[in-house]
C-alpha cells in the first residue's frame, strides 16, 4: 500500500491526516480518485487553475515536478504528501 499524507488546510477537506491506498498507479490517477472522494481540491485538471497553482505534491519528499509530474508512478511503500500552496519564513 502507498501512503498519502495531508497537511495544512487540506486536512479540513479530508478530515484525516493520513491514509493508505493501493499503489501501482500514477499521481494523476490517484488525484482523480481523491477528487471523487473529497471534491475539486484534488482535481488533476490543469484548468481553470493549474495543479501547481493549488497543491504542492511530494513523492517520497521530492516535488513531482522534478520527477515525472502527474505521471509520477506510485509504488507500494511510496509516500505522497499533499500540501496546499503555502509560504512563511
Amino acid at each position: 500500500m502507498a501512503t498519502i499524507r495531508y497537511f495544512g488546510s487540506i486536512r479540513d477537506v479530508t478530515k484525516t491526516m493520513e491514509e493508505e491506498v493501493p499503489g501501482g498507479r500514477s499521481v494523476r490517477n490517484l488525484l482523480s480518485v481523491l477528487e471523487s472522494r473529497y471534491g475539486e481540491t484534488f482535481s488533476p485538471s490543469e484548468k481553470p487553475v493549474p495543479v501547481a497553482g493549488r497543491l504542492i505534491l511530494l513523492v517520497n519528499g521530492r516535488h513531482v515536478q522534478h520527477l515525472d509530474g502527474l505521471d509520477t508512478y506510485l509504488s507500494d511503500k511510496d509516500v505522497l504528501s499533499v500540501f496546499p500552496l503555502l509560504g512563511g519564513g
Binding site: G61, L85, G88
Partner: peptide, 24 residues
Amino acid sequence: NPVTGEGLPAYGTAVLVNIINGVG
C-alpha cells in the same frame, strides 16, 4: 493570493515545519 490570503492567516509561518521536514 493563496499564501497571504489563506495559508499564512490560518497557520502562521509554522505551516512550513512539515514541508521543510518533508523535503529533508
